[in-house]
Design a protein around this nucleic acid. Structure first.
Lengths: 250, 250
DNA sequence: GCATAGAATTGAACACGTTCAGAAACCGAC
DNA sequence: GTCGGTTTCTGAACGTGTTCAATTCTATGC
């Protein structure tokens, strides 16, 4: 009865960047109108109801024109997604400044994330669906997501750096990626969580944050360095790709 | 130029079971013909080229008839998926019988999995895309996947049980789920891995298997029980849902 | 044998994301 | 101002997954 997700004949091969940059002021206004309409409709109606036709209509342009500025509906969604990332940072940073313990700093960041993202839970599933496709620009491991991903990892570097207490150097280097992975795992759980107020995810977040903090303490113990070295080796191997780094494989 | 993935107006609300069971022998033959055609086409042409029209044509029926027996294209894919699961067990079990160390038993199972699944890597992305949607029957946490999931977890229970050496009881209870999660993580990496022969995934598998085995040894150490208790608590909290168990949240 | 209820089957129709050939608007050069 | 090239924009058309009213088939009761 309802609608599904992407359809039509779609190109798997993704060319290069976003699209021809608007040359004139009017063109820029058109692009903005489309993006704004898309974001509004996504917020108001969710992914499936926000059809390309509806977006184009609200923006006062033709469907074809929307595709002139954005290569796909997914790209539109990505812009929307990037905006929530900015929101997250805005909430997380001040909160982070008040905490010095690792566990509390993890909670500061992650709770900001959960709060920011809560309004979109109803259609988070569809978003995740797109995000899981390795070919999708929304994929957290994709080249197109690199900027957002690197920023997020850098953010976790700050989380670690600002925390009191020291870390073994080898582990310290991999901590940001490790924490980013943790954060992705929590988000994966969140997507599937339909408990009221996402209570279960909040619990998971708290417990795992504590677990991580405890594990870090343990990791400093003298007998732990072989295990730690193994862990560090795995993380490094996961990321390095023929010289340059990346998330996921390849 | 190529095609995308699911399209058309699709129903998010999933009714109950598979579909009306075929009443007559002829009906059963029709159902089988559709399923066989679907599996063949998926193998030969991949997800996108295996359109419902093509499947129906090969089976010698109308599209509508395919939808009489299967609620969606995804359900057809799920049948295909279940078959690879059976293949996996067939390869893994004899191999498992020859190993007694935990690390080697993990490798036996997981390498069987990677081998079984390798032929489908070209369109694994699309499969994963569907699988990521919480509403999809393909989702590893979904009710529809419960059977396959429980079997897989039970399989990991066997992997642990058959290993020499003992485990702290609390940890032993959660090990199967933990290992199943590990296995899912490796598969996630695999989907994104385009290194030749999936070499990077094989490396990750070997290193993480070793890491797990080491961590288990460490977990037995006297000072470790608080950390272990926390871990066990997290895992239990993740799974229990208002009494009954489930993967994911909810 | 026949009628009939239910199962099985059909295929046109729908809404979707996406494409594309061409129309329109714009801009600099003369 | 008007020509020529480029950017911007249009909307019909395509192929998809899915639905559904209508049709055919089938087994069972008489």
């Amino acid at each position: 009865m309802q609608d599904d997700t992407p359809r039509g004949r779609a190109p798997r091969p993704r060319p290069a960047a976003s699209r021809a940059a608007p040359r004139t002021a009017k063109a820029r206004r058109t692009r903005d109108a489309i993006l704004t309409a898309a974001i509004e409709l996504l917020r108001e109606q969710g992914y499936e109801r926000a059809t390309m036709r509806a977006i184009a209509e609200r923006a006062g342009v033709s469907v074809g024109n929307a595709y002139y500025y954005f290569r796909s509906k997914e790209e539109l969604v990505q812009a929307f997604y990037a905006r929530t990332h900015v929101e997250h940072l805005a909430v997380a940073l001040p909160r982070l400044a008040t905490q010095r313990g690792l566990r509390d700093r993890l909670l500061a960041t992650m709770s900001a994330k959960l709060e920011t993202v809560e309004p979109y839970h109803p259609f988070a599933g569809v978003l995740f669906r797109s995000a899981a496709d390795p070919a999708s620009p929304l994929n957290p491991f994709s080249e197109e997501s690199r900027e957002v991903r690197d920023e997020a990892i850098a953010h976790f570097a700050e989380v670690v750096d600002g925390a009191r207490g020291s870390l073994p150097k080898d582990l310290a280097r991999e901590m940001p990626v490790l924490l980013w992975t943790w954060h992705m795992g929590v988000m994966l759980y969140w997507v599937h969580d339909d408990s009221p107020g996402r209570a279960r995810t909040w619990t998971l977040m708290r417990e795992t944050a504590e677990l991580i903090a405890s594990a870090v303490t343990v990791a400093k113990l003298p007998g732990m360095s072989p295990l730690r070295r193994k862990l560090v080796g795995v993380v490094r191997g996961m990321l390095s790709v023929d010289g340059h780094d990346a998330g996921g494989a390849s």
